[in-house]
Computed example of a mutant assay.
Amino acid sequence: MSTKTMTPVNPNKALWEKGDFTQLAATMRESGEELVKKIGVSKGMSVLDLGCGDGTTALPEARLGARVLGVDIASNLVEAGNRRAESEGLSNCRFEEGDASALQNLEDHSFDMVVSVFGAMFAPRPYDVASEMVRVTRPGGKIVMGNWIPGDPTLVAQILKISSAYTPAPPAGFISPMLWGVEDQVIDRFEKAGISKENISFEKDTFTFQAAFPSSTFLDKFRYYYGPTMNAFEAAQKEGKEQQLLAELQDLFRKQNRHPNENCTSIPATFLRVTVQC
């Protein structure tokens, strides 16, 4: 009697379906478009956007004429992405549910470019993620990742750092997604996937969150719609530390806001842009 090996369930699915990341993604549109213009997307190119959310970079890629498949673990974000593509008449862009650690439905060497901006970094089993990205990229194609940097003084790294202080210790074997922001870690993962170090390059870049509301309202988007922060507030509430967490984040958002009008938000966040030549 044969036994079938089951792929482990991605523990992040519930996390990213818990809130509504579209509330945050709405503040990231301009930076998403700017990044896509930098990375060499062109008409007719086949692009996989991995951990795509509702299309912050996938839709700009399609507007440039690429054939785009967006893959995300969260079904609500896949639905939102398909709605956005349909509303813009982008028949060259579609979204489907999938796990960056196991792209079972995608054939080898089927994309000219794989893009993952603050997406695949949160998937479990990072060595599998690197292997899968390399597998589905054609020889001569490239992979571009945008990853938050551990300990960076800008917004997102600090949100995650502060939040982690209020949440229970992760389970044994947990690998921090922030390690995708460490160059040596990235090199090791892609080398294990068959990429030579010489074909991996790094550049510090900036994503700017822009909103026509104050930083306190922007913080509310993280508090009520962003899974990791939602979990932190729930844990802090159980320990009677909810107001302490809120005060820390309020101070962070206020200090990080660069907009001259206090009723608007413009907060830059530094990330590591990784380019892999396959």
Rank of each mutant, 00 (worst) to 15 (best):
G89R: 06
I162S: 02
E132H: 06
S131R: 15
Q23N: 10
L272A: 05
F174W: 14
Q104T: 14
R67C: 08
E33K: 14
C264S: 10
S216M: 12
M28Q: 15
S31A: 15
E234I: 10
E79W: 04
D152Y: 04
D220Q: 13
F253G: 00
E97Q: 15
R125T: 14
F207I: 14
A269I: 02
L103R: 05
L245K: 01
R254D: 13
D112S: 08
D184R: 11
L249I: 05
A80Q: 02
R94C: 09
G51D: 06
N10R: 06
N231G: 11
L35P: 00
L219V: 09
F95C: 04
V276A: 05
P260S: 11
P177V: 01
E86I: 07
V68D: 03
N12R: 12
V129E: 01
M133R: 02
P60T: 07
E33Y: 07
N82M: 07
R29Y: 08
G19V: 01
A212G: 11
T57K: 02
G40A: 08
N199S: 13
E242M: 07
R254Y: 08
N263A: 13
A102W: 13
D72M: 01
F21W: 10
A80V: 09
E242V: 12
P126L: 02
S266A: 15
A169F: 13
L155P: 01
I175G: 10
P177M: 02
A212Y: 07
V115I: 12
V134Q: 00
M145R: 03
G65P: 07
S176A: 11
I73P: 00
D108P: 06
V186A: 01
V36G: 01
A172F: 05
N199M: 07
L246I: 11
E97M: 09
G151T: 05
L155Y: 03
W16G: 00
T3W: 11
I267N: 00
V78F: 00
N263P: 08
A232K: 00
F271T: 01
G140R: 05
T217M: 13
V276D: 00
K142H: 14
I175S: 08
D220R: 09
P260N: 11
D54G: 13
G53N: 02
T137L: 05
T167G: 08
M1R: 13
G44Q: 05
A26T: 12
A157P: 00
T22E: 09
M28R: 12
I175R: 14
